[in-house]
Design a binder for these strands. Sequence first.
DNA 1: ATCAATACCGGAAACGTTACCGATATTATT
DNA 2: AATAATATCGGTAACGTTTCCGGTATTGAT
Lengths: 339, 339
Amino acid sequence: MRSKKRALTIQDVAKTAGVSVSTVSRVLNGKDDVASDTQARIMKVIGKMGYTSSLAARSMRSHRKNLIGLVVPDIGFPYSIEIMKGVNRAIAESKFDLLLYTTGDVQKNGTALHEQHYVSLLNNSITDGVLIVASAAAEFITNAPIVAVDPHVINPNYPSVQGMNYQGALAVMEYLMGLGHRRIGFISGRPEIGSALRRLKGYRDALTSAGVAVDEELIKPGDFTQKTACKQASHLLQMDNPPTAIFAANDQSAIGVIEAAEGLGVRIPDDLSVVGFDNISEARYLGLTTVDQFLEEMGYVAMQMLIKLINGETLDLDVHKMQTKLVVRSSCQALTPAY
Amino acid sequence: MRSKKRALTIQDVAKTAGVSVSTVSRVLNGKDDVASDTQARIMKVIGKMGYTSSLAARSMRSHRKNLIGLVVPDIGFPYSIEIMKGVNRAIAESKFDLLLYTTGDVQKNGTALHEQHYVSLLNNSITDGVLIVASAAAEFITNAPIVAVDPHVINPNYPSVQGMNYQGALAVMEYLMGLGHRRIGFISGRPEIGSALRRLKGYRDALTSAGVAVDEELIKPGDFTQKTACKQASHLLQMDNPPTAIFAANDQSAIGVIEAAEGLGVRIPDDLSVVGFDNISEARYLGLTTVDQFLEEMGYVAMQMLIKLINGETLDLDVHKMQTKLVVRSSCQALTPAY
DNA sequence: ATCAATACCGGAAACGTTACCGATATTATT
DNA sequence: AATAATATCGGTAACGTTTCCGGTATTGAT
């Protein structure tokens, strides 16, 4: 379809413009020590030939790239999308461009490959700094500015933005128990993720501190996906003594719960109260009560921190705790003691 | 926070392992002509030092990068998100990784800067090929495999995936007129975008071929955003002779129309029928009748085409027309002739 | 025991760019 | 008119890899 000619180099431009490579490089980088007429001539040649410099070569030699890397396990996750919106907003306000790096399906390839990919992008490469979302393994990175959103490890040795997952879960449980619920099911998130564990811990602690024994039968392992949650919720709802409320570790799981309830003819909120976590945009339309952890804001703040870091400024605080807020909608109801 | 030491190079590894640079490179690339014990030793050193090769240097020297670039004007747009989901799916099935490139706010910087950014990424650089979404300006690219989704130009000189915007708009209008509507408002998209123009043309042609004169007053300029659409819809609804239906050029605009209607106490669908375009995920929850153009599938197909191109295969067809389908939900109603 | 084949490894060039240093031509200074 | 300062440019060395070529050891064959 198109002629597959060799890529143009700065040499080609120099040759046709009748100048040296250095001079072309100078006009390319806007240096002032080049005669205005030669500059104009070179610019014209560049335009005519359609030349652009190689990012690879450029960023190997010089060190400012105006490019920030964003590492996300999976675009497509509403969670990732919300964060990316904030990231995008910060980027738009800055002079940086964004280079997103994803390894596609996070389930498939284990963390090992994943990490290696990170590092190979970041370490000596193409970007001025990196924002990592919901992942472990930035321990290797020693030389590039880096900020993490929702790091899996609890105390990373790099700056991070973290949601207050424990407090958020506590708030949910207080709300649910305030409505009279005692048998509350829990669909957990992936256990290797710190935030998932903290939500689970909030669930447990809230129960015990309210004097309610934790029934392990009511805690079902999930993986943050709608599908798994749907399956697990079905199990919960078909127990002999089913829960009157289900707290799902994230909104997608909550949607799975709703799906399961619909499939079994269980009415929400009449027969079952459901709460999620994240407040993704779908939650509003579904009337899902959930906890907002301001994901968009997290992305925004994290990117601002990173930009500061890149500019050599120091951060006022290394870990930014993001507030959570219970968003009450219509998926919960007070329990009427029918027995 | 962290020691800002210089980045490790292959030289450092070679030195501490007591071998030459070439040898390290060989084990790095899995060549077989290196003794198994030295290989093990080097691997251990690499692991211990936490070394990873520089993407910049590597991709400058060798030519296979296993990296595909995706250029999107704005993540955050539901439109972009849907396409990215499909892209992500194709990527997950392949051995490639994704490098997303965005210039943030597309409104701010004109196309000029935009294009330059493209090209500088693509041309001689970091990726094996590039997927461009909803944009003009890939004319410069001559040497890298490239595929466009929804290109702005009508007949690009590179492969592309295009929605059948004209037919989709026709279907909407037939549906609306089939319900008895004759005064149908239109909120257009950004005029520099080809697909927006084709939807407008579909609107016009459907009216005239049905013998209905086009009332230019009913056509309001939009820009694919909810906000603008809301404002324009308000104007439409406050006319002396307001439309009984509004066809918005995309779903976000349709949401803006709904917002305007709510603000003015206009009931949907009783007083006003609304149709969108795109079938983004929010549309389902809103009960918005719209046309599905299978954005996710477009991203998927486009990426598959690109991968074929990169692998040196030839495409069976250079422009893939994606079917559209009218999705009827609850935002429209037959017009009862009350006058 | 000599020679050929092979396994393993190091040296050096190349990729496309930028940064530094210096050379020449032009202008200003006295 | 001679010298100093400046403007403009070219040459060359990096940057960190990979690849090619060739050189030792080691092994096998006779």
